[in-house]
Design a protein around this nucleic acid. Structure first.
Lengths: 237, 237
DNA sequence: ACAAAAGTGTTATTATTACACCCATGA
DNA sequence: TCATGGGTGTAATAATAACACTTTTGT
């Protein structure tokens, strides 16, 4: 019996923190289906292309973000795969979603792709296909990973202050953190932050020390947010 | 330009604990490529079939485990997707891997599918395709999730003792835990274990209370294993 | 009675929380 | 000098780790 063959796409959930809000890079559709709705940037994978390669290519082509705008800052990881039969009304498409975290960069020059606040996207639901669901899964993954990894630094410029890092946590989690305790926790964690020796006053007040991200990928014990949120699983039979 | 179409499979990493070892359900290949090697049970998805449905179907067809041998015990979740171009020498295949956790059940009656110790599989490397890599990712996911979820109970029969649960942790993590502290931790966690009132002496010694799994999915604060292992990411561009 | 495993108590150490307080800059 | 945010100290609470010790069975 013949092997069924399907169209496979890569969709990107690219998140950043800008203007005190968690934002996602969204594509404004200008034709049917879902004309006028927001969709995640993405596209079909090529026959000779590995999945992460396709994700990087689409990040440049469709999201307008070159692979390494600042060295080492752009994070890209596989999120999950979505494949129920009628998720695209035209044809069956299996979509491998990738999660990208970026500092506050200028997006593409194209007007079609825009940073959009995640809250608005989730509440007003003008998202095409199942992209609201994929976006939610990506946001929840990012929230969870801030707890036990150094990923928050991916939202920051190459050099950042402890308070800037804290604001990332507060905006992504949507809850305030004690500045003093946060400071001790992240500066006390082994290999988590590396002081550069420089300082900045860009946030006003007393000069703050600047750090770069250390090579520790895990944060143990984790930073804990209260209310674990009803952790809705990505997929379950 | 035409949309490329690819073969899509679902592969299963099904884990259990038996005879004091962590075991995976493996398929002994009897034809090329990789004749004589072990491969993960799996197969092509059908055109009208959602991914979790395909995973359940293949769990029955190829792994010989019916969907609910014991109600609620069998856990199935999406693991990751693998798609680099030459992972199957015959044709390009994108594979969505699922992770299953099961109590110590008799596997299929077919001789072709067998419980095999994970240590041996990883050390001797007689695995077909990239199935060693997928297996490792599944094992690492299971290890990590024992820390902060109640998933260890998925390896146990419907009613189990605290010591049986502890042995799951010890075998999956490969390191001993203090029985007293473990006991207090899991019995003290809210909604984690529900006492049935019954006891058993099947492990010898003083009768142990039997529990069923509670409805808490998270364990906070987490159970922590030392040496976080070099957490190798599933996928990264 | 004894071995074996379940389960409880206790204490030292470590981490988190919730603050008071001081420090260094720009205006 | 004052407002603003950066950074340190400290004491109460909670969690963990490392034990001694008691309980309840089978043999």
């Amino acid at each position: 019996m013949p092997v069924p063959r399907l169209a496979v796409t890569v969709d990107l959930v690219v998140l950043t923190v800008r203007e005190q809000r968690l934002c996602a890079l969204m594509w404004r559709r200008d034709h049917d289906p879902y004309n006028g709705c927001w969709s995640l940037p993405g596209g079909f994978i090529q026959l000779d292309e590995d999945l992460p390669v396709a994700a990087s290519r689409l990040m440049a082509e469709r999201a307008g973000l070159a692979d390494t705008p600042v060295q080492g800052t752009l994070h890209l990881e596989q999120l999950a795969t979505y494949g129920y039969p009628d998720r695209d009304p035209r044809q069956r498409v299996v979509s491998v979603a990738y999660l990208g975290l970026a500092p506050d960069l200028p997006a593409s020059s194209r007007a079609q792709v825009l940073w959009t606040a995640v809250d608005d996207l989730i509440n007003h639901d003008r998202a095409a296909f199942d992209h609201r669901r994929i976006l939610c899964d990506g946001v929840e993954r990012a929230r969870a990973k801030l707890e036990y990894t150094s990923l928050a630094a991916a939202f920051c410029p190459p050099e950042f202050t402890v308070a800037e890092l804290r604001r990332v946590y507060e905006i992504v989690w949507g809850s305030p953190l004690d500045p003093r305790n946060f400071h001790r926790k992240v500066t006390g964690a082994d290999r988590f932050l590396i002081p550069t020796g420089r300082t900045t006053t860009r946030d006003g007040g007393r000069p703050a020390r600047l750090y770069t991200r250390g090579d520790a990928e895990q944060l143990r014990p984790p930073m804990l947010r209260l209310k674990p949120l009803t952790g809705h699983l990505v997929d379950r039979a």
